[in-house]
Design a protein around this nucleic acid. Structure first.
Lengths: 215, 215
DNA sequence: TAGATTGTTAATCGATTAACAATC
DNA sequence: TAGATTGTTAATCGATTAACAATC
């Protein structure tokens, strides 16, 4: 049987699978043991056979008349999303956001921020166990090479994004999680993943406006 | 001619259009006046006729032999994304992120954060023009109703998300921009837009792992 | 058993890509 | 003019939905 990985999964499917996980945790917490594709489909406004296909595609099997076992489904999804392993990364941008992403409660699963780099004045901020050390951006290449870190989170104003990215590239970074609204120019072997805040918010604002204009 | 709005546009198309905007700003800054669908298609790894369809769908016309005028294309995209108008919203969650989102340089287009609310101890933080006032969550319903604010940004740990969302709902909030990894349960008339950080990062981590394992 | 639910194939739908005449 | 580029239709591809036999 051919097992899908994240790399061979469409983005829509990936998003759904990640959302199933969130919801299954709620069901588990409320004492449920099994869930049917009908329940999931209802919650997510999609078709039940689509849900079954999604789960099947990552190797989850249900039981006729019963449904899908929540604990093992959660487990397989976590395997699939790679949450059992950790990716070490450096952060480039506003310390406030770096601290947020590295905060235990919010922590992005599988992401471990080693330290941060910031534009502008070269002070070292927030040292100690509660926070995260921040260095001036110029120190990045030396540090990432020394530590062998290959991933970075980029979260700077659009005007600074390319320059900061170039600094990351010269430090041997091969994967950039780009939270800046800027289309980076990077060599083909470097992976870039963009989080598009603006489009997402625009979609929400439009829906709100539509509701309010209707009355 | 039937003109598309955000509400009638597929999410893929919406994302592409938003990204065209980022790139067109770069081209404009570098002195370009026009751009062809071929250039855009190359940059974004999609088909040129798809680019033309995207632009056509929001009413942008090109000129044969010339291409698309950058300034007017940027203008139409901004109209389409609603960036000419502002949506007032309150923020619920970690002050550090609220300050980030409200920061001029990073500001999400069209989003205006009036104030923030936080879980836990009820101190007021960060008053004054540089920052943003934060109040205890319990004050939210009264304040949003008084101000007539209908939108909110939710950015709390998953365990607190539903409770915080309920507080927003009781304050008359009709649109929630959900940065928490939690599937909210809200009435049908309330718009929720989820930003899925975890799935996005998981996709990046998988690509990095694939590259590194190849050698 | 009867009814609920999966697994899976076939049908539908929509999005992407190919192709080419029309335009400048 | 010749060549570049759009606008648009048709073809392809993939994702979603419908349907139903198999299972418990």
């Amino acid at each position: 049987m051919i097992m899908n990985t994240i790399l061979t999964t469409s983005r829509n499917t990936l998003n759904r699978i990640s959302r199933y996980h969130s919801y299954l945790k709620v069901l588990l917490a409320s004492g449920e043991v099994c869930v049917s594709s009908v329940t999931l489909a209802q919650k997510f406004g999609c078709d039940q056979s689509g849900v079954r296909k999604d789960l099947k595609s990552i190797g989850i099997q249900g039981r006729p008349h019963i449904g899908f076992d929540i604990i093992s489904t959660l487990d397989v999804i976590e395997q699939y999303l790679g949450w059992q392993s950790t990716t070490e990364a450096v952060f480039v941008g506003a310390p406030t956001v770096g601290l947020f992403l590295s905060n235990q409660d919010f922590a992005i699963k599988g992401l471990k921020l080693l330290c941060g780099f910031k534009l502008g004045p070269a002070d070292v901020l927030y040292t100690g166990d509660a926070g995260m050390e921040f260095f001036p951006l110029g120190k990045l290449p030396g540090l990432t090479r020394r530590l062998g870190v290959k991933a970075g989170v980029l979260c700077v104003p659009a005007d600074d994004a390319q320059e900061a990215a170039d600094m990351m590239l010269s430090g041997g970074i091969q994967a950039i999680w780009n939270l800046s609204s800027f289309e980076l120019d990077v060599p083909a072997h470097v992976a870039v993943e963009n989080v598009d805040f603006s489009a997402s918010f625009a979609a929400l604002a439009a829906r709100l406006a539509a509701v309010n204009n209707r009355f």
